[in-house]
Nucleic acid binder design. Structure first.
Lengths: 286, 286
DNA sequence: ATGAATTACGAGAGGCGTAACTATT
DNA sequence: AATAGTTACGCCTCTCGTAATTCAT
């Protein structure tokens, strides 16, 4: 049987077009590569190269072999990646979410319901990334803001979130009780960075707005307090304590897209395993 | 990167269920296998086995790995096979035919039209085998008795063949000028073995007939001369010389399936290359 | 003169075998 | 006693590196 390293070297040679450059790329000597290619040729049982005194190139057989080789190498990498993911998925539950609120909803439930398994989580801006991760095994659970179409995926709309604006009382916008996103476009706005799909929504609906991104949640609370800029909050976030926001006015946002429904999803085959979780998620519905 | 031999050994282990038996099957010692499996486990980065003092079995990771490994090994074999076929197809033209007549029609044309390439041929009983071989590259040209459906295949109906019966004059059937295959069913018939789809047709239409199969063409001519059994001939076969068959009567066969149309085919992408052949084949049409 | 390929030869890694040991049936 | 797996150790193959050679730009 032909070993993998020969196929790797062949592909490197095809990329680099000369043995010397390929050897450099592979961190081996050039004579070693010569030998390998001779061996490969012998083991394939057909000629793979066009040789002149000072030049060696792939012939048609060689090009075809390299094509197949690439697919085999890709399959091997895929195997390793998938088995490692599978192994990890057996010991840890990874939750992928399109927004931060579901993380704080669901993570505590997971730790109590599945104490023997490690819990991890990630925020992603796009539902598609999350679904792909669910299929590949990167995530065992994902929370989307659109219902998934695939019949292999179980989903449960477990809660909604409505965002609104916190506006400093002296700010011009503070005269309104409600505004549209279009009205906000062009303003300076404070935004916490890790808000998942909300960020994409803001970019799309308010393309002219300058967002002041803040990384730390603690800093965010402090800055909103002091700064003269409006910031977002939501009905899902508990105001840290009554002291905060004494100088801020709550302004509603008219747009329908200021409200989101969260769909907690798993692969259907895993539904019974995660049933306890979905059961508990019922309590989030009013 | 993980080498192929480790994957082979893993698959062997999965088949054999014990290291000792797998080692035996692989023609290596059992400690060597132990080592390999330890190495594979290490390179995969996850545990693959459930170990007790005296027993080692694949765990879920291991089973998954073996599954992928099988696919990778299959791909490698496929690569070798296909490249070798490709190489061969570049230097020889292999003609696959459903009957002997097209072979003697086409082979001489090929040798004159493509003198730089070796010519090989094969007879196959089923059109499907031929088409499959055409796709895979086993054949560059095939002759079918049904027009191919695939739009990637070019076909040209270049001639017909009509079979009839040669009957010894003292034989009861010799009173007829024409018979149906159904009438023949149950008779003893002489048949040359290498007649491709005709054989399948005979089996189907005359399930109760005893066929006396003869391997050698020379022998066939002699036996038909002497034997008291009817035999097939066709309008495409030239009677060797007038001496032959002086004691035989020609009896027509009514059934439509006693006539065949031959479709000479190649992949469409190769059509221009084989154009000279198809051009010459026009002369076979009346 | 520089760079590319091959050949020759030697070093070192690693696959594999033998032997010895432990545990299970 | 027989069978299964692991550990230890040494051989030998095979991969790779260095050096030298040939040829082309």
């Amino acid at each position: 049987m032909i070993e993998i390293y020969l196929l790797e070297q062949l592909c490197a040679f095809e990329e680099c077009a000369t043995l010397s450059r390929a050897a450099q790329m592979l961190h081996i000597s050039q004579p070693a590569l010569t030998h390998s290619m001779q061996k490969l040729e012998e083991q394939m049982g057909v000629s793979l190269f066009e040789r002149t005194k000072n030049r060696i190139t792939l012939n048609e057989n060689g090009k075809l072999t390299a094509q197949y080789a690439r697919r085999i190498l890709a399959m091997e990498n895929d195997m390793i990646e998938r088995v490692q993911l599978f192994d990890k998925s057996q010991r840890t539950i990874t939750l992928g979410s399109c927004a931060p609120v579901p993380i704080s909803d669901i993570t505590p439930l997971l730790t109590t319901l599945f104490p023997q398994r490690r819990i991890a989580f990630e925020i992603r801006n796009h539902d598609e990334e999350l679904l792909e991760g669910l299929y590949k095994g990167n995530y065992q659970l994902v929370v989307l803001h659109e219902p998934p179409q695939d019949s292999a995926v179980f989903s449960f709309a477990y809660r909604t979130e409505q965002i609104f604006l916190m506006v400093p009382k002296q700010h011009p916008l503070a005269v309104h009780d409600s505004v549209s996103l279009q009205q906000l476009d062009g303003q300076n706005l404070l935004l916490y960075t890790k808000i998942g799909f909300w960020y994409e929504m803001c970019k799309e609906r308010m393309p002219h707005t300058h967002f002041l991104m803040i990384n730390e949640m603690d800093a965010f609370d402090e800055v909103t307090e002091i700064a003269a800029f409006p910031s977002f909050s939501s009905d899902a976030v508990l105001t840290p304590d009554s002291r905060t926001y004494h100088n801020q006015k709550r302004v509603m946002i008219d747009d329908p897209c200021a409200a989101a429904t969260y769909y907690c999803c798993c692969m259907k085959k895993d539904h019974s395993y995660y049933h306890p979780l979905f059961h508990r998620l019922h309590s989030f519905r009013k």
